[in-house]
Computed example of a mutant assay.
Amino acid sequence: MRYLLVVSLVILIILGGITGYVLLFENSQQGELKEYVLIVEKGDNLYTIAKKLKSNGIIESEFAFVILGRLWGIDRKLVPTAYKFNNAMSVFKIVDDIANERIYTIKVTVPEGSTMYQIDKIFAEKGLIERGDILRVVTNRSIVEKYGIKSDRLEGYLFPSTYFVPFYYKGKPVEIVDMMVKAFFRKVNRVEYERMARDVGLTFEQAVTLASIIEKEAGKPKEEKYLVSSVFHNRLKRRIQLASCATVIYGLVDKGIWHDNNLKKWHLSYDTPYNTYIRVGLPKSPICNPSLESLKAAVMPANTDYLYFVSKNDGTHIFSKTYKEHMEYVRIYQIDYWKYRR
């Protein structure tokens, strides 16, 4: 009798072990592969998450998930975020992903020199926001003031980079903007940058504005940024208009009247707070979100007497000190160049 009881107990233990293994390490779900994005909301716990996974066909046993989750301690690590699972994954794999915070992210690349209008489009095309969402956030005065920036917008402070955006930020443009502004201030030490800006006669915000113009005007070699910077610094000191086409274009975009990507003569005399052909000094705010190199160039200009530069049509520019010299280069690299290519 005792022998039969021992044998029965051993069999039960073996069956229990097999069942536990299947529940924890294998997934017996059959049929079509299902994917599910688990959104962990504030207040969620192991039981609510287990129900979500079960009701969406990702796990079979809520009990197995809860027990393993407790053993892994994930009940103490739950924060609002998102994970992507499928019904071919074991409970062990699911719990391990949560324990190790392998959150579901979407890769978004914001190129250097992107404007807030372009950034809004980039994130909308990734399905993270609706068009206009980021524009509403970056022009919200109370949000701008939160970062201690003296401007009417966060243009210039949305750091261009490749981001792995938590899926949980979907529909949350405030969090997306905050992510980018914080990236800017991780790259730029505000106290140090403000000191460097002051040394060249600029405020913190003016330096970022100048960096944005340099970003749009400078050619391919990064060394050119420092030469372009010297031209603008020299013009600012002499109270000469910066005469940057990039600022004119931004003003037209901001007014909603830039449509065919073709800068016309009348555009240069159309007054906006960004038109540096008719206004002396810097525009009222940045015209794009500059690279780190352009930010450096704005406060570390090359030591030159240059006042002009013109494109050589190969991604580089030629610089000059006098208007006469400049006009000769305009004739060579612009007028004659394009005349012989018609």
Results as ranks from 00 to 15, higher is better:
residue 303 N to R: 15
residue 212 S to G: 02
residue 319 F to S: 04
residue 33 L to D: 10
residue 80 P to D: 00
residue 26 E to S: 15
residue 120 D to M: 06
residue 86 N to W: 14
residue 230 S to Q: 09
residue 234 N to T: 00
residue 302 A to I: 02
residue 178 D to S: 13
residue 177 V to D: 02
residue 221 P to I: 10
residue 202 L to E: 00
residue 304 T to I: 10
residue 18 I to L: 13
residue 335 I to K: 14
residue 24 L to A: 04
residue 308 Y to L: 02
residue 152 D to A: 13
residue 241 Q to D: 09
residue 291 S to I: 01
residue 16 G to Y: 07
residue 98 I to E: 10
residue 273 P to N: 01
residue 101 E to G: 00
residue 305 D to V: 00
residue 222 K to E: 15
residue 278 I to L: 11
residue 1 M to W: 15
residue 195 R to P: 00
residue 243 A to W: 09
residue 18 I to N: 11
residue 174 V to F: 15
residue 109 T to C: 11
residue 234 N to Y: 01
residue 146 K to M: 13
residue 139 T to K: 09
residue 225 K to I: 00
residue 107 K to S: 13
residue 239 R to F: 10
residue 326 H to L: 11
residue 10 V to K: 07
residue 154 L to D: 04
residue 193 Y to T: 10
residue 182 K to Y: 02
residue 44 D to R: 11
residue 129 I to S: 02
residue 32 E to S: 14
residue 299 V to N: 02
residue 18 I to C: 05
residue 97 D to Y: 13
residue 45 N to M: 12
residue 230 S to A: 10
residue 261 N to C: 12
residue 131 R to W: 04
residue 235 R to G: 01
residue 215 E to K: 03
residue 308 Y to P: 05
residue 118 Q to N: 08
residue 193 Y to A: 09
residue 214 I to Y: 02
residue 311 S to L: 04
residue 95 V to P: 07
residue 194 E to L: 05
residue 33 L to A: 12
residue 246 A to G: 05
residue 10 V to E: 05
residue 81 T to I: 14
residue 290 P to N: 05
